[in-house]
Design a protein around this nucleic acid. Structure first.
Lengths: 206, 206
DNA sequence: GTCTATATAGGGATAGAC
DNA sequence: GTCTATCCCTATATAGAC
């Protein structure tokens, strides 16, 4: 979705150099970590040199930032939708959101892994950006919503717990379910999440 | 447990320099990341110099490794207990293990955060060790158990999902529940996990 | 057990030719 | 848009005095 890589006639154009850099960087950042990945590593795999990268990105940070923003974009509509509701409705909307999240995590597992395996690096880059422009990150927005004391603790734990379960099964548990067709895995996971979220009566309206 | 830091009369001896290094390193590794933390950072906070650290640890890696081994030790008895059972019994034993896990994560949140925020660094250090001695890591052992095709997929997903929920709520969701007494949070979490794990009939014996 | 001084390597980043 | 060459810095790690 961030990459409109189809032309009008549906043919696959070769990806721009910039795009190839991002692909390679994503793979390396996930498997080696951001800090351990040098620009030389990326350049070599691209078949070019360090200096060439600087035409496309001013700093190494910017590569990580752009990748993070793609994850950010994925959660954005969901968070905005959530923000328009008030607390009671947020609880009710949650199961639907998790349901969509499952598909998104499956389709973008690498971006999720990038985020959780390079938590500190991402955080540091975001801090740098925030010092210049006071933009709000998706993570902060998300936390603010889940922190709300207006939502019963029981529900908050279930909301965060369901999120942990989804990420745990689909991202962290990589290889654990490698033999299972992804659709079947998703189906099982949805059942588990339903049990987590539906096991209490609907939130009282008062 | 690696640290027998109580004397016969119960008084608190001052922690050894080695122990202080580990404490400081743990804090820094969690908050800045392993790679971004230089030996100078650790030495400064300790009030000494870089070179002094090399008396206590041969390499920077070894500090991370020792911290990781403490997490390793925590899960060890549980894993060994699990290994002695056969597949059907493993499913039945799971709820009890998760219950103990909740207490352990609470008591050692920093070690858990160290592990998940420095996933790649830990993995690389372990690989180095494995190339010399062919010892099996707790993580590998754990995966091998959860991968078993003899356990129904439904159960495997619930097992991994419960683990993700616990870690998600107690570690990742740091700050989210900062206002909540930890005992109350644990109680709520146990309820959620019960709903996840108990929502199916016991596994059939054939 | 801790220090100063140093060896050595590799990183990110820039200048300027092509 | 990509190259070569280079600058500069910081990191780990070691040597050897105290």
């Amino acid at each position: 979705m961030p990459q409109a890589s189809t032309t009008a006639d549906g043919a696959q154009p070769e990806p721009s150099t910039r795009e190839r850099i991002l692909d390679i960087a994503l793979a390396l950042f996930v498997e080696q970590g951001y800090e351990k990945t040098s620009l030389r590593d990326i350049a070599t795999r691209l078949g070019t040199t360090k200096a060439a990268l600087y035409y496309h990105f001013e700093r190494k940070q910017d590569i990580l930032l752009e990748l993070h923003l793609r994850l950010h974009a994925l959660g954005r509509e969901a968070l905005e939708e959530l923000e328009r509701l008030d607390d009671g409705q947020r609880v009710d909307a949650w199961p639907g959101l998790i349901d969509r999240l499952i598909d998104q995590v499956i389709a973008n597992r690498d971006l999720v892994l990038l985020h959780q395996r390079n938590h500190n690096a991402v955080e540091q880059v975001l801090d740098d950006e925030r010092n210049q422009a006071e933009n709000e990150d998706a993570g902060q927005l998300f936390r603010r919503i889940l922190q709300s004391p207006a939502i019963p603790l029981d529900q908050r734990v279930r909301m965060m717990g369901s999120l942990g379960a989804v990420v745990g099964v689909l991202a962290t548990g990589e290889g654990l379910f490698g033999d299972v067709p992804i659709d079947e895995l998703a189906e099982q996971l949805r059942a588990v999440v339903r049990d987590m979220l539906g096991a209490t009566e609907p939130a009282p309206s008062n």
